[in-house]
Design a protein around this nucleic acid. Structure first.
Length: 509
RNA sequence: GCGGCCGUAGUCUAGCCUGGACAGGAUGCCGGCCCUCCAAGCCGGAGACCCGGGUUCAAAUCCCGGCGGCCGCACCA
């Protein structure tokens, strides 16, 4: 019995939303790289433009674009390099894994730099000293395994050693360019950068289609603010939403899975959400996913990360997660309070003063960073998962209408009597009106409806013999399969109301 | 990366154990006939043995390696 996940992946590949890269031509192409087909790309672009419309523009975000390749120094400063060549060793008994250098340091209480030692030397130290597994006490170890989790690059024609890497997050670009952006835009704190970008992680085992890839896309917001005055501007911004209920899985509710609904006011009063700025962004993103992207509230939650789960840079950290029956809770947005971890790292490694001056000139300080980071591919994938419907033999995607990659299809009822000509004329009209319109005359009318259902097309327009007599066409609703007749000249406005205005077919008759 | 299961057209699948004929079928796709609204019917067409090596007169089938997929563990900065 196939689950929704399998059906969605199969549908997506078959109908051109996405598919694994290069497989058809080169067997054995590495996993974790996906092609967006025409339909998937359109949907992705729609999600990005909704994000710009609802988040970037209204919040005064300065969107920038920084390179995918950055010098290794950047990742030394960001702390990513530390995890760069992990040498791991595994206990044969309980299968716990440890970084071999840390294991030796802790077991022998030494502070020496073990970096220069070969695998054989490290292994000998472990065996000769009879180092035990901290978990189960066993002395049986597997060999050392290396994990290279960033893609490194040798930039320059004569370089043979890696001197740069593909970025594992867009954040470092924003942090490194913060000062320049701040100055060129005559910034005041809080100062917000945003990036749409590709990032690269050499995952050990990419899995589950778009859920874990080696190259993927993020929509990131980087809010730089004065740590002594985090509520500036946000006190007023949060005001209208003080009673908005944010859904949390708190650390103490891990076992039960109980979700705590906490108003923004309660979050502030209890100190749970730290300050007005962070609280506001938590509200904003829950609203965006619920109201704009159409994820039901009961399927959303902010999961509070605990020590050990949190990234090395984070002081507070919530994952916005979505629930599906097939995949369980999956992280869509990483919301991290990174403090001045990144800026101070770059200041230390580069020696460049990255501080800003307070408006009254009394203080020089490093801004703090709060970062909500959307995993775009996962969002798109979950849109498909949650939209998937089956009823008897009919399969359709109940996507939010405005997210559909094809918005309206135009069919002649039959391939004769001048119906195709009329239908093509309407198709041209709707295309020039800006609709993502699609024309099809192949196969029976029922088959064409089903094909459109399958890719989530919300509206189908059919030209029949009556069209030639009175200038009306039928307009069919994907979800109910009901039809109304509308005049051709009313079609653009009614379609706009239907697709973008939230009107139902009954409102348009 | 480890362990288990698995890999035949876009999808589902027959054949594999027991090596031998143009690799069969369904669905989908393309074209045509018919047709006045929800995958009807008929005719025609394109389309596959994951990759590499080995055994053999002969490999989809047996053996080895690789790659990939699913599940679990680990990883997820």
């Amino acid at each position: 019995m196939k689950g929704t996940y399998d059906k969605v992946v199969e549908l997506a590949i078959r109908r051109g939303f996405f598919w694994p890269s290069s497989r058809d031509v080169y067997a054995g192409a590495p996993a974790g790289f996906y092609v967006y087909g025409p339909l998937g790309l359109r949907m992705k672009e729609k999600i990005v433009s909704l994000w710009r419309k609802e988040i970037v523009y209204p919040e005064g975000v300065h969107e920038i674009e920084t390179p995918n390749i950055l010098p290794l120094k950047v990742f030394e400063a960001s702390g990513h390099l530390e995890h760069f060549f992990d040498k791991l060793i595994e206990c044969k008994k309980c299968h716990s894994r440890f970084r071999v250098d840390k294991l030796i340091e802790e077991a022998l209480g030494i502070e020496e730099n073990l970096e220069g030692l070969s695998d054989e030397e490290l292994m000998r130290i472990v065996i000769e000293n009879g180092i035990r597994c901290p978990k189960c006490g066993s002395t049986e170890w597997t060999g050392i395994k290396k994990f290279n989790l960033m893609f490194t690059i040798a930039v320059g024609a004569e370089a043979d050693e890696p001197n740069a890497a593909l970025r594992p997050e867009t954040t470092q670009g924003s942090v490194v360019e913060f000062r320049k952006s701040y100055m060129t835009m005559r910034g005041r704190l809080p100062f917000i950068l945003g990036q749409v970008g590709r990032v690269f992680r050499n995952e050990i085992s990419p899995r589950r289609a778009l859920i874990r890839m080696r190259e993927f896309q993020q929509l990131e917001i980087h809010v730089f603010f004065d740590p002594e005055n985090p509520d500036y501007a946000y006190r007023e911004k949060l005001e209208p939403y003080l009673d908005y209920r944010i859904r949390f899985l708190r650390r103490e509710d891990r076992e039960t899975g109980n979700i705590t609904e906490m108003t923004a006011r309660e979050g502030l009063e209890t100190g749970y959400t730290l300050n007005h700025l962070i609280t506001y962004w938590l509200v904003l993103y829950q609203k965006f996913f619920n109201e704009t992207l159409g994820f039901p509230l009961e399927r959303l939650r902010y999961r509070e990360l605990i020590e050990g789960e949190k990234a090395h840079y984070a002081l507070a950290h919530w994952d916005l997660e979505v629930y599906t029956e097939d995949l369980g809770w999956v992280e869509l947005v990483n919301n991290a309070y990174r403090t001045d971890y990144d800026l101070s790292g770059h200041m230390r490694v580069s020696g460049t003063d990255l501080r800003v001056t307070s408006p009254d000139g009394s203080r020089k300080f490093l801004p703090h960073l709060y970062e909500p980071s959307i995993g775009l591919d996962r969002v798109l994938f979950h849109e498909l998962m949650l939209a998937y419907r089956e009823d008897g033999g009919r399969v359709w995607l109940q996507l939010p209408r405005y997210l559909a990659p094809i918005e309206v299809a135009i069919f002649p009822l039959m391939k004769r009597d001048g119906l195709p000509e009329k239908a093509r004329e309407i198709h041209r009209m709707l295309m020039s009106d800006g609709f993502l319109a699609f024309y099809d005359e192949s196969g029976t009318i029922g088959r064409r409806y089903r094909r459109m259902d399958e890719v989530g097309t919300p509206a189908c327009v059919t030209v029949d013999h009556q069209t030639l007599e009175d200038g009306t066409v039928t307009l069919r609703d994907r979800d109910t399969m009901e039809q109304i007749r509308v005049k051709i000249e009313d079609l653009p406005n009614k379609l706009r109301d239907f697709i973008y205005g939230g009107k139902e077919l009954g409102d348009l008759a």
